[in-house]
Design a protein around this nucleic acid. Structure first.
Length: 426
RNA sequence: GGAGAGGUGGCAGAGUGGUCGAAUGUACCUGACUCGAAAUCAGGAGUACCGUUACCGGUACCGUGGGUUCGAAUCCCACCCUCUCCGCCA
């Protein structure tokens, strides 16, 4: 959510910033609701003050044993007036809230202009894609050739966009997850966290998936429904919901491995082959909660932590900064890491690292107490994949494939595979 | 799933219709005493919003949402959560 004070002060500047994303903020409509809200609030509070003081007078008079009939008559209409004012206020607040919850975050100045991914700016290229002296295959063929990756069975069980892994391939994914968790906890100072995979709507409201993007989520049919988390960002960031922490606990750095569930509504026909885009995938997520002054540096550091994983796995990647039209709803600035996939002859997203600044923390009331002012201030929240395990598995399979159909195990993962150096048929 | 108890400020814990945003204790901050600290004494201190912005005034918040009332932490209804016992289960 954008700071309502900033909105009142300079709605036009906000609209100009959001327009860079291609988002149209109807300032006049918002302003009309805001004016009604303001007058309704002042009126409501004045009427309440009147009610409160007259109620006190009635009480005092009764305590003295005086007749209160006159007093009661004088406040006869107050209730109706108050009720009308409250209803008007409530309506205006609801209208404002639904507008404000639908506004994306303000972009930082260094986010490049552009409408889609073609305008994203490459800031770094790491590693050199390997040259193969044989015809490369994609992970689907490699996995099928080894008999370790089965989409047919998955579709019999659950339909499309699911995968079944067997044996050493399943273990390789587990090895990737373990490796990532170990690096982030031991070397990057993150605290390992286990969190619920089912959350309620207010958590998703806090991180910004709701109210706008409910169609992307799986939802249970309980009376108060649960949602399956689309990313660990949701439960982990919400750890700080409605709390005020002391300065000495900052920065808070969490790492969590969770499965992620996405309905992928509207992505029909996109990435239908293989396990690039699944309803269920594994991800190791990095989340930081920091003081406002620290978030810019924290984004660079967090992105670097994800990069280390790709570097240790010796997977070529590039780092891009997302342009105004491609960046996510709640982010003020995002770096994507794209890993080289020989099977697609392309770089594909494997991590997305974003600085949400106070956008999420305002929605969920995540604050810290600034010792300088003694006052609670909103935290800045950041998160990034460190990295997506399913796609990392694809990247390892394709980059480490051998002419005989086997897969070499990256050196960094061998300790997690009981020293196994290669995955081959039988 | 069944039975019972309970949700009040950082914590503990009073408060069953009228200056209760809320006693008291404790933790916290400031000052006094002290060489310093402890102890003691005095004072301060919740969160958010609105108006004024020197000071200050107002509103809301006692699990959540409704209701009754001139007036609700207190009464009524629904829901949520926690704890104990039983059942079931990993």
């Amino acid at each position: 959510m954008i700071d309502p004070k900033l909105l009142r002060q300079s709605a036009d500047d906000v609209a100009a910033n959001l327009a860079r994303r291609g988002f149209e903020f109807d300032v006049d409509e918002w302003r009309a609701h805001e004016e009604i809200r303001k007058s309704a609030q002042m009126q409501t509070e004045a009427l309440r003050a009147e009610r409160n003081s007259s109620a006190r007078k009635v009480g005092a008079a009764k305590a003295r044993g005086e007749d209160v009939a006159g007093l009661l008559a004088s406040v006869k209409d107050l209730g109706d007036q108050l009720q009308a004012a409250e209803e008007q206020l409530q309506k205006a607040q609801f209208a404002l809230q639904s507008i404000e919850l639908g506004l994306p975050n303000l972009l930082l100045d260094d986010v490049p202009d552009g409408f889609d991914e073609s305008a994203n700016c490459e800031v770094l290229k790491w590693g050199t894609p390997r040259t193969f002296e044989f015809e490369t295959r994609d992970h689907v063929d490699i996995g099928a050739g080894l008999g370790l990756l089965d989409f047919d069975a998955a579709s019999r069980i659950s339909g499309s966009r699911f995968a079944v892994l067997h044996g050493p391939l399943a273990r390789l994914q587990r090895a990737l997850i373990q490796f990532m968790l170990d690096v982030h906890t031991a070397e990057h100072g993150y605290s390992e966290t286990y969190v619920p995979y089912l959350v309620q709507s207010q958590a998703l409201m806090g991180t910004g998936q709701l109210p706008k993007f409910g169609a992307d989520l799986f939802k249970t049919d309980n009376e108060t429904p649960f949602y399956l988390i689309p990313t660990a960002e949701v439960p982990v960031t919400n750890l700080l919901r409605d709390t005020i922490v002391e300065a000495d606990v900052l920065p808070l750095k969490y790492v969590a491995h969770t499965p992620c569930f996405r309905s992928e509504a509207g992505s029909y026909g996109k990435d239908t082959r293989g396990m690039i885009r699944q309803h269920q995938f594994e991800k190791v997520e990095l989340v930081q909660l920091v003081a406002a002054t620290e978030s810019s540096d924290a984004l660079e550091a967090l992105t670097g932590h994800a990069e280390v994983i790709l570097q240790r796995l010796e997977l070529p990647y590039r780092k891009v900064i997302l342009c105004a039209g491609d960046i996510g709803f709640g982010s003020s600035k995002t770096y994507d890491l794209e890993v080289w996939l020989p099977g697609q002859n392309a770089y594909r997203e494997i991590s997305s690292c974003s600085n949400y600044r106070d956008f999420q923390s305002r929605r969920m009331g995540a604050r810290w107490r600034n010792p300088e002012s003694g006052k609670p201030e909103l935290l800045h929240t950041l998160n990034g994949s460190g990295v997506a395990a399913g796609r990392a598995l694809v990247a390892v399979m394709e980059n480490y494939q051998q002419a005989d159909g086997s897969i070499s195990v990256p050196a960094a993962l061998q300790p997690y595979m009981a020293g196994q150096k290669s995955i081959r048929k039988n």
